[in-house]
Design a protein around this nucleic acid. Structure first.
Lengths: 210, 210
DNA sequence: GTACTGTGTGTACAGTTGTTCACTAATGTG
DNA sequence: CACATTAGTGAACAACTGTACACACAGTAC
């Protein structure tokens, strides 16, 4: 008696394994504590198959970081398309961020875990995605000419701080259950205020210091 | 042949186990991936002893959070004592933070990991320590009368943002090797600029929005 | 059609894991 | 001093772990 062996597409098992790992993370497990057997079991695949696709768990983590990059780019594109009026820019961006964080909960959980994770490579990968995100944000801000008085390096710093603040709100967001609308709205409001405070700082930056 | 059994003090093994876990974290392991046997081995103690002191690894993690609270309070006290001139407040505080982060590297690694960790209880404990820290900071700022124009809730928000920014810099700091003075100085400068930006924002908060 | 390669399967094994149990020595209390 | 309590020990166990090996089948190249 042979379990069906169809091999429809190359890389099918690979995706099953990656989403199995994400599923486990979504269930509250920490990526660093996942084992090969556990992931293959969740994927409905025999343990040996793992080695056909990945060298070890760190390798799988690295490939998850790549996919995370795609998720972030999608989010960025949607934010750009929705920037209708400049005065609602912050609110709308935060809303898009929150909806993406909920739609890709496991991905963002993985990201939050990886920032202080076990694998240096994964850590560096996530950090690099965040830097990219911040530099894109700096470009957008420059294009919108809302902060013309800032030097490039000050603009980079501002974007960096924005991205970090949002990333920290992310860990708040992932801590509450997905249906808790009251708490989610609290986090939303707080994040918006953080960003407003930062932009007020940026608007008055040169006039005060440096 | 009996290994020495002296039992000098009650709770001696308990401390050995806790610092063994910290040591492993300091060596790059993630707390969530530590096992009971591994910790007892590092502590030079037989596995059974673990159960005399903790119910499971989460329990140990919770008790580490308590000790982390002490570390943070020490840091806060030192910062308060060193606040000589108000205009150097940010620089001096960041310096104290950096030196404490290096002196208690494993503790802060544990903290950074726990923020997105596996145990909800540990997560909440660390978050609560950060909230406490932020509220103490708000008290200090109120006392110094540097931000008199802010409402209590705006002051709380500002302190919260400050603490989060510093906490994020912490993960930068823990990512570089302890001797890399150049990178450490970069992080120091960037953190200082973040805080300056936030305080510029706070100084101009009411005049612009809300 | 035949051979090769890539990707899946099943079996196997030694090492590690968490946890239980019965035991023993040191300490504090009366 | 006797005695209960506490905090350590070592041996045992079944369950699980990562990894290796030989094998099977689909697809492609010749």
């Amino acid at each position: 008696m042979m379990a069906e062996r169809q091999r429809r597409k190359p890389g099918e098992t690979r995706e099953k394994l990656m989403s199995a790992a994400l599923t486990l993370v979504g269930k509250g497990r920490h990526f660093a504590s996942l084992g090969i057997r556990e992931v293959t079991r969740q994927a409905g695949v025999v343990p040996t198959s793992f080695y056909r696709n990945f060298r070890n768990m760190d390798d799988l983590g690295l490939q998850l970081v790549d996919e995370l990059g795609l998720v972030l780019r999608r989010m960025m594109r949607e934010a750009r398309e929705h920037v209708s009026q400049a005065d609602k820019l912050i609110e709308e961006s935060v809303d898009i961020f929150i909806s993406h964080a909920q739609a890709n909960r496991s991905f963002f959980l993985f990201m939050a875990q990886g920032l202080a994770g076990e694998s240096r490579a994964v850590q560096e990968g996530i950090r690099s995605e965040m830097r990219f995100f911040a530099s894109e944000l700096a470009n957008d801000l420059r294009r919108l000419r809302l902060v013309d008085h800032l030097s490039d390096s000050d603009l980079d710093m501002t974007s960096d701080l924005v991205v970090r603040s949002v990333a920290f709100s992310l860990t708040d967001l992932l801590g509450v259950s997905a249906g808790d609308d009251y708490q989610i709205d609290q986090i939303r409001k707080r994040t918006i205020r953080f960003l407003q405070l930062i932009f007020v700082g940026a608007a008055n930056w040169n006039s005060v210091s440096q």
